[in-house]
Structure formats: structure tokens, C-alpha cells
Design a protein around this nucleic acid. Structure first.
Length: 487
RNA sequence: GGUCUCGUGGCCGAGCGGUUAGGCAGAGGUCUGCAAAACCUUGUACAGCGGUUCAAAUCCGCUCGAGACCUCCA
């Protein structure tokens, strides 16, 4: 690895060499889910993308503090600081405490992420656990002149902020354009400017989730939690902030304004945004109703799905697309990935039984170099995979006897595959129904009978055994080293 | 309307000035009793039209088409 890691920075709209503020430490913040319903598959793609980032940074030797929040309060139905609280609404619907909703979907979320083999973050702070920090930040913003209170609700003064700073810096938007495209204030509005957003919201009498504050009982606005928690755990300026692309224009723009307004410094060096997941070319979204849940994807229990796809096959599918490209789900694409993934993992197994030769007929060092070059180029996992498949070809060729490898090169390949497939891409072999010893013994008996039949040229019997077993998803392969079976 | 992406062979998907991306599917071959797996060989690809250049999928302009954000979503 002789070149540096380059990361595409949304802020500058180009790739920049990654330099941590305080190496070997790296601060990484990713906007987490709002836990009022089952995790959306699109969320999963974002978190899996950042899992790749996290894993690669660790692989490079950085000490990463990865913070991903859980939004369990303060997220309203509309972003106009009105409408129902999402948790309260769902709680009412299911006749539960809001915190029961939070608990249920937090556990569900963690379960799904574990299925995808995503490493848990170092810290997973909740909004409700950081009310004090959010109030403090709001106070500071008022003190600094960027916040104002109206009837128990505190707003951020975008107009004032925009006079001193570039409010639309992240998405390259001009204030006038933003104003042109935002809704007119009507007589009922409390805010001064139409771009102003709430830092703290006064609780209506019926509101269950509420906390005392200098402005009366209420709850925090959505954007302030990320500013408050990233500041608390990563400091006023940290290395990388990630999230889905849809968050850039509003949520992250406001986050920057809040942090800048509070700390007088831009909070983040590298802004990274993962692209959307689409179905038939259209963004999969909660409101469009064109999506399926991760669980449905695994079981295939959805009209859009022909069959179920395992978490690892899906993860591999995601890794075959760059995180900044949209990823389109289709059965055809999923099935292609499923087979490719199986091929990759089976080659990894073959690698363990490879015989070495006095000299190598292929260049393995080149492969390793290419893999690092790809990752260093803004985490280009598709190119990593292309190179790994060159490795697969080599492994299978050596196994077939058409290429040779030295003992040293075999070790190098083992390390390469372990580093990239397991550690960095985060893929793992899927255990097929932990075959019991009893099953193994039975299979051995059956295979012995079949071998006898074959020796006697009784192919009717041997083929019958093979065909019948296949019906029960047991595949038989006759290799030079004998017959093997897989479930 | 504004701010941006993107249009690559049957499908998915990299590349972003000169060299085979890769996977899946298809075709032919080797191996096998037959399969399976594997290996070898194999593809009229770069939306269209102009321009820059010795050289363009890759840069510039226009046209057509798709999508995202600007309104809750990662």
C-alpha cells in the first residue's frame, strides 16, 4: 500500500486525501435510524456502506471511535416543527408506551444489522439520553444570538446565520434559491424566517414525551441531537460524518449551522453520503410503499421477490456497487450476486487445501496491491471484488493443475482473502444447518453405497441416489479426491 | 422552476484521455459413465449529434431520456 486513502468529500465535491485530525485516532459519526418502525432496507444499505468504511479504517490501523445515534425522540411527522411525534403516534396505534416502541425497534434494528454482519458502533447514544446536552447547546445558541424563543419553542435564526456563514455550503445552494423554494410563512407561524427550524419544541398538553427546560416543558428538535452528541463524543471538529444522501440538504445543513453557531468552527472535515437504494429505478422509500423489509428479503415473503436471499448474499450484492451509486434491487441481479458470492466463498475453502509448487506461475503481489489501490480510491469495493475474482481464478486453476503457486504465495493469498473478504468486506461463510455428526455418518453410509454401485457400473442406482438427495438440497460432486456433498 | 447526479454489451456493475474490469446469463471445448463443479476459448458495450485532441466511453457544448434533493425517510 503505497498510496494514501482518498475520500470523496461532499463539502468540496471531490476526492481528498484523508488525514485524521489526531492520528491514529479517527472520529466517525453516522446518523442512525429513527426507531419508530422496522428498519428500512435503505437504512441498512447506508449502515453497511459505513460498516465498510469503519472496517477499512480499522484495517489500516486507525483507532476509530464510531458513533451512531439512535433517534428515539423529537422526530416529528413533518419537518415544519408541527404534526405528531412519530413515537407518540405509533404508540397510540399499538397501545404501548413510546419507550416500548423505542425498545422494540431498537432491538429489531440491532438484530438485522447483526444479520448483515455489521460491526456495532463504539457508542450508540440515544436522543432521550442526551436531553441535557441538547438543552445546553440550545442555550448556547441563544446566547450566541442564533436562537430565539417564541412561546416555549426555540428556533434557529437562519437569516442571521446566513449573513455570517454560508448556510447552503454542503449542497452548494444559495440562500435566495432556498428561500424561493420554501413555503411562505402564514399568520400562525411563530418563526421569523421561513428557513428557521426548531431547536426545542414546546410540548402540547397531550404530548407524552416531555422534559423540563428553561423554556418550559418540551422536547428537542430533530437536528440538534446529532450536533449535541457528536460534540460530546467526538469534539467540536471531527474527521468523518456520514449519512444517506437524502439527509444532506436539510438535516446535515442544519447540523452544520448549529455546530458552527455554537462552537464557532465547522464541525466536520469529511462529509460522506451514501446513495439511495432503488427498486425498478425508483427510490425505495417508506412513503412510496415500494419496499420490502430486510426480513422479507431474507425469507422471500414479498410479492416483489421470487425467493429469499441470505443476508451475506445481499451484503455481497451491496458491496458489488460503489456506495455513491444508486443500487437497484431486482431478482435477476440478486441471483447473479448469490451465485458469485457462493463461488467466492467456495474458492476460499479450496484455498485451504491447495498444494504448493517450487515456483509460482502467477503474480499474487499484484493482486494485493490492486485491492489496496481500490479501497484507497474512495472505498471502491466493486473493484476489490473484481480483483478477488482474479484470485478465485488463480485458486481454482492451481487446484485444477493449470497454474502453480509457491508455499509463500499461497500464504499471501490466504492473508489477502482473509483481510479483504472477511475483515474488510465483512463477508462470512453461512453455516448450512450445522450438520450434526449423525447426519455426517448417515451421509458417509449413503456415499459408500453409491461408490459401490458406481464400481459395479450400476449407474441407475448411483444416479438415483444423487437425484434423490438433490431433491432435499444435498448436492453431490465427484471429484478426483473422492465424492463430496454440500447442503 | 432551482441544485445535482446518471445514461456502459442479455442483466448487474467498475472504469473517467491511449492498456482485458469483474460477476451472472449465453455459445464452443476439456474433464466425467452421465452430471455437477472447475478450467480454456468466445461478445456488433459505452444514449444521440457536434467539437477539442495524434488519440474520447473518459474532456467541452447541445439534444433526448432516467433519477435524487428542494416536503417525512438512510
Amino acid at each position: 500500500m503505497n498510496q494514501a486513502l482518498e475520500i470523496y468529500n461532499t463539502l468540496s465535491r471531490k476526492k481528498e486525501v484523508f488525514k485524521p485530525i489526531n492520528a491514529p485516532f479517527v472520529g466517525l459519526y453516522v446518523c442512525g435510524p429513527t426507531v419508530y418502525s422496522d428498519v428500512h432496507l435503505g437504512n441498512c444499505r447506508t449502515f453497511i456502506s459505513f460498516d465498510l468504511v469503519y472496517r477499512y479504517l480499522i484495517h489500516l490501523g486507525y483507532k476509530v471511535r464510531y458513533v451512531r445515534n439512535i433517534t428515539d425522540a423529537g422526530h416529528l411527522e413533518g419537518d415544519r416543527d408541527e404534526g405528531d411525534d412519530k413515537f407518540a403516534k405509533k404508540a397510540k396505534l399499538e397501545q404501548l408506551e413510546p419507550m416500548e416502541i423505542v425498545q422494540r425497534y431498537t432491538l429489531g434494528f440491532r438484530h438485522i444489522m447483526a444479520e448483515f454482519n455489521a460491526l456495532p458502533p463504539s457508542i450508540e447514544p440515544t436522543a432521550t439520553g442526551h436531553i441535557v446536552e441538547q438543552i445546553e447547546m440550545t442555550k448556547k445558541l441563544i446566547d450566541n444570538g442564533y436562537g430565539y424563543e417564541v412561546n416555549g419553542t426555540v428556533y434557529f435564526d437562519v437569516d442571521k446565520y446566513a449573513k455570517e456563514q454560508d448556510y447552503g455550503i454542503l449542497t452548494n445552494r444559495k440562500l435566495d434559491d432556498l428561500l424561493d423554494n420554501s413555503r411562505e410563512l402564514n399568520g400562525q407561524d411563530e418563526k421569523k424566517g421561513r428557513l428557521d427550524f426548531a431547536l426545542w419544541i414546546k410540548a402540547k398538553p397531550e404530548h407524552i414525551m416531555r422534559w423540563p427546560s428553561p423554556w418550559g416543558e418540551g422536547f428537542p428538535g430533530w437536528h440538534i441531537e446529532c450536533s449535541a452528541m457528536s460534540k460530546k463524543y467526538l469534539g467540536n471538529t471531527f474527521d468523518i460524518h456520514g449519512g444517506g444522501m437524502d439527509l444532506a440538504a436539510t438535516h446535515h445543513t442544519n447540523e452544520i449551522a448549529q455546530s458552527q453557531g455554537c462552537n464557532h468552527t465547522h464541525p466536520v472535515n469529511f462529509w460522506m453520503h451514501a446513495n439511495m437504494l432503488t427498486v425498478n429505478g425508483v427510490r425505495m422509500s417508506k412513503s412510496a410503499g415500494n419496499g420490502f423489509l430486510p426480513g422479507e428479503l431474507f425469507t422471500g415473503n414479498h410479492p416483489l421477490l421470487q425467493k429469499g436471499y441470505s443476508p451475506m448474499a445481499v451484503r455481497f450484492f451491496m458491496m458489488q456497487t460503489h456506495y455513491r451509486s444508486t443500487l437497484d434491487f431486482s431478482n435477476e441481479a440478486l441471483q447473479a450476486s448469490e451465485k458469485g458470492f457462493a463461488k467466492l466463498m467456495s474458492a476460499m475453502e479450496t484455498l485451504n487445501s491447495l498444494k504448493h509448487s517450487p515456483k509460482s506461475s502467477v503474480n499474487c503481489a499484484e493482486l494485493s496491491k490492486n485491492c489496496y489501490a481500490a479501497m484507497n480510491d474512495d472505498f471502491n469495493s466493486p473493484v476489490v471484488i473484481a480483483n478477488l475474482f482474479e484470485g478465485v481464478r488463480i485458486i481454482n486453476s492451481v487446484h485444477a493443475g493449470t497454474e502453480t503457486l509457491t508455499e509463500q504465495d499461497i500464504q499471501l493469498l490466504k492473508k489477502l482473502f482473509n483481510d479483504f473478504v472477511i475483515d474488510i468486506l465483512g463477508l462470512k461463510t453461512e453455516k448450512s444447518e450445522t450438520s450434526s455428526t449423525a447426519l455426517k455418518e448417515v451421509m458417509q453410509v449413503i456415499l459408500d453405497i453409491r461408490a459401490d454401485a458406481k464400481n459395479k457400473k450400476d449407474f441407475a442406482t448411483s444416479d438415483k441416489i444423487r437425484d434423490e438427495l438433490l431433491k432435499h438440497n444435498i448436492t453431490i460432486k465427484d471429484t478426483k479426491e473422492g465424492t463430496i456433498w454440500t447442503l
